[in-house]
């Protein structure tokens, strides 16, 4: 079975599939370590809000998506599948999940403001 043995757009190429697996493990471990380190240190320059959320939270979310990409592409070997098969799996998720996030978080923010500005006290 032929495997595509390069990651990072061909920047790193491995000799065998087994070596690639260990390489991806090292990469995922580094990303997790960076996440934990950032979570413990909480650098102050990352705590300023960017697009309605702390900058640090955006860093965490982007790093999570990076990890998810490598788990799906190398561990679940989507990299070795047909393009059309990969798309039929990934596209529904890429379309539906951001949509769901968008409508629910906007609604939640609206409810937050109603409860904040309303004439009812929630803190008693």
């Amino acid at each position: 079975m032929a495997h595509k043995l390069s990651i990072f757009r061909g920047l790193v190429t491995f000799k065998s599939n087994i070596q690639k697996i260990w390489g991806v493990l090292v990469f995922l471990s580094i990303v997790t370590a960076v996440e934990v380190a950032l979570g413990i240190i909480k650098p102050s320059f990352l705590l300023t809000p960017v697009l309605g959320m702390k900058g640090l939270n955006w860093v965490f979310i982007i790093l999570t998506l990076v990890k998810a990409y490598y788990i799906a592409w190398d561990f679940m070997h989507l990299r070795d599948e047909r393009r059309s098969f990969t798309s039929s799996i990934v596209l529904p998720l890429l379309i539906l999940i951001p949509y769901l996030i968008f409508i629910l978080l906007v609604e939640a923010d609206y409810i937050y403001n109603v409860m904040l500005d309303g004439f009812v006290s929630w803190n008693f």
């Binding site: 999940i97 769901l100 996030i101 629910l104 978080l105 609604e107 939640a108 923010d109 409810i111 937050y112």
Partner: peptide, 11 residues
């Protein structure tokens, strides 16, 4: 996302 909803509601 439901968790995110409750969290943003009580941000």
């Amino acid at each position: 996302v439901a968790y995110g909803f409750s969290r943003f509601k009580n941000i």
